[in-house]
């Protein structure tokens, strides 16, 4: 589904104009319906990678392909979820959830209604984002993605600002939705447990410029009670160790 090949990204330093390589020779691929978590030191280029995959940023070299097509502009079948401010405060919940959609009105309405029901946020359509909780905001973003029937959801630390309980509830929700709707999930996170709870594979990025990727296979992901198992904690330790080197 996602093919990243020899990707390079160089920012120009604001003051000096010196090139600042952020990503170098990055290659990775994600199968359709697969769930991949990405974890790595701050500033290593994870957000930049997601921006490239969303079509918001052009790579300096190499390329990124989604569904066999090179990504050059935002796609209707790819959703991006950010940590905060994922909703525009001046638009109602409903208008936020239909933002940018090119589906026809009737279909959009029907899909979104379904998604709102499924996510338990029906009845909040007319509210503004300041009138719903953090967990509900994430649900609205998810509803938008589901109503769009996207093939890929890219998440950039979507749950970082939530309290522990809401975070775990939302993680469970994402897992359920992923199993039910079989989209491809790329999750960038700083939370090792979250990465292992939601990723079939965990990719560990080296410090900038990002290149080598260590992959931790995580086949038990999604199994009931995996999160409480000894194996889970061993994996957490393993990833922590890899991050520290």
């Amino acid at each position: 589904m996602i093919e990243v090949k020899d990707l390079g990204l160089v920012y120009k330093e604001a003051g000096s104009g010196r090139p600042n390589p952020v990503i170098q020779n990055l290659s990775l691929s994600v199968e359709a319906g697969e769930s991949v978590a990405i974890i790595g030191p701050s500033g290593c280029g994870k957000s930049s990678l997601l921006y490239i995959l969303s079509g918001l940023l052009r790579p300096s070299s190499g390329n990124a392909r989604i569904a066999e097509q090179e990504v050059t502009k935002p796609r209707q079948d790819v959703a991006l979820m950010l940590q905060e401010s994922g909703l525009l405060p001046w638009k109602s919940v409903w208008d936020n959830a239909t933002l940018g959609s090119r589906k026809n009105k009737a279909e959009r309405r029907e899909r979104l209604q379904e998604a709102f029901e499924e996510l338990g946020i029906a009845g909040m359509e007319a509210r503004y984002p300041s009138q719903i909780s953090g967990g509900e905001k994430r649900r609205v973003s998810l509803a938008r993605a589901l109503a769009q029937e996207v093939k890929v959801i890219l998440m950039d630390e979507p749950l970082a600002a939530l309290d522990t309980l809401t975070k775990e509830a939302t993680q469970n929700l994402i897992l359920t939705l992923w199993k039910r709707h079989s989209f491809t999930l790329v999750l960038v996170t700083h939370d090792i447990e979250e990465a292992l709870f939601l990723g079939q594979r965990v990719l560990i990025f080296a410090p900038r410029p990002t290149h080598v990727v260590t992959t931790v296979e995580n086949p038990k992901m999604g199994e009931v009670s995996y999160r409480q198992s000894q194996e889970f904690f061993d994996r957490v330790q393993q990833v922590r160790g890899l991050l520290q080197t």
């Binding site: 991006l80 950010l82 401010s85 940018g100």
Partner: peptide, 27 residues
């Protein structure tokens, strides 16, 4: 205007010139 708002709208498929009416002006 926080960059996240612009990013969110663009990624959702709002056309660049519509960013003015959807994000920059109301914000």
């Amino acid at each position: 205007i926080p960059k996240e708002y612009v990013v969110t709208a663009l990624a959702a498929g709002v056309k660049p010139f519509r960013i003015y009416t959807n994000v920059i002006l109301p914000g």
